[in-house]
């Protein structure tokens, strides 16, 4: 279908983008790679008066180190995240999960910042950044502020960004030495996750010392399976992991849609958590 008519701005800097957004109020949408926004426009599910294309702003793409933190520019494409040597070395979970997003052509355009700001609970990367204990840096007329991932995702398709703020950076602590795995269930290769589970584990002397489990599509925001995380501490074999994974759906509120019932999603969360933890811990 043909998108509804809108005005178009292509600011040359973050400051200019923020000014344009502040002037437009609630009626503007930010266009990053467009791989979520354009389908919404084509289906006429969004009617922005103004589309602000931040695709040409210099300095928003690329990955750098800041001590023990990786700083990923919001406009870094999925393709670039997957192939970036720093991401592969220090945040392998992000690289491997990003490789499961959609398909190669979408990954050439789609961006990390765009998919986080879109805040779709069925998107893969929100749960991954939540599991990585990442932080999101927003710039607005009042300057920059840093939000922990757990405060960034507010509700279905709703982030904590103000209408005049632009997501500029994603910061993730280096997870050197942690085992990782992203396990997702979806119906066809390039479709959204019915449920996904992002796992990081730190091993110590054959046991799991610490685990972090992020859940995709188990509620209106990405979630951490904190009961399972607690139960995994000290787990030394597959039986202990299986017991801990039984709690993976505790406290979740998965939705009902054409792909799955809430009960089926809870089942998937338990099964996929077990598989992901075993793979991450090398116990599979």
């Amino acid at each position: 279908m043909i998108p509804p008519a809108f005005d178009y701005a292509r600011p040359a800097s973050v400051d200019e983008a923020v000014r344009v957004l502040a002037d437009a109020g609630e009626e503007a949408k930010v266009l990053a790679g467009g791989q979520s926004l354009l389908p919404l426009l084509r289906l006429r599910l969004a009617f922005p008066e103004l589309v602000v294309d931040v695709g040409r702003i210099p300095g928003l793409r690329g990955v750098r180190e800041d001590g023990n933190t990786l700083v990923i520019g919001a406009m870094t494409t999925h393709h670039d995240v997957i192939h970036d040597p720093l991401v592969r070395r220090h945040a392998g979970l992000l690289a491997s999960a990003t490789a499961t997003v959609a398909d190669p052509a979408v990954r050439h355009r789609g961006t990390l910042g765009g998919s986080l700001a879109h805040a779709d609970p069925a998107g893969d990367l929100p749960a991954v950044v939540l599991a990585l204990d990442g932080e999101l840096v927003a710039q607005g007329p009042r300057g920059r502020r840093t939000l922990p991932a757990r405060d960034f995702f507010v509700d279905y398709l709703q982030s904590a960004l103000e209408p005049d703020e632009l997501l500029v950076e994603v910061r993730v602590p280096k997870a050197d030495g942690w085992g990782f795995h992203y396990e997702k269930f979806h119906q066809v290769a390039q479709s959204w996750a019915t449920v996904g589970v992002a796992v990081l584990v730190r091993r110590d002397d054959g046991h799991i010392a610490e685990a972090r489990v992020g859940l995709t599509n188990m509620g209106s925001t990405p979630l951490r399976a904190s009961e399972t995380e607690d139960a995994l501490s000290g787990a030394g074999d597959a039986a202990a992991v299986t017991r801990a994974a039984e709690a993976a759906a505790e406290g979740t509120r998965p939705s009902q849609d054409v792909s799955a019932s809430p009960e089926y999603r809870e089942h998937l969360a338990r099964v996929l958590t077990r598989r992901a933890v075993l793979a991450a811990a090398g116990m599979g």
């Binding site: 389908p39 190669p104 050439h108 355009r109």
Partner: peptide, 8 residues
């Protein structure tokens, strides 16, 4: 490669 239905 890009999907030209998803690019303005």
């Amino acid at each position: 490669s890009v999907k030209s239905c998803s690019v303005l």
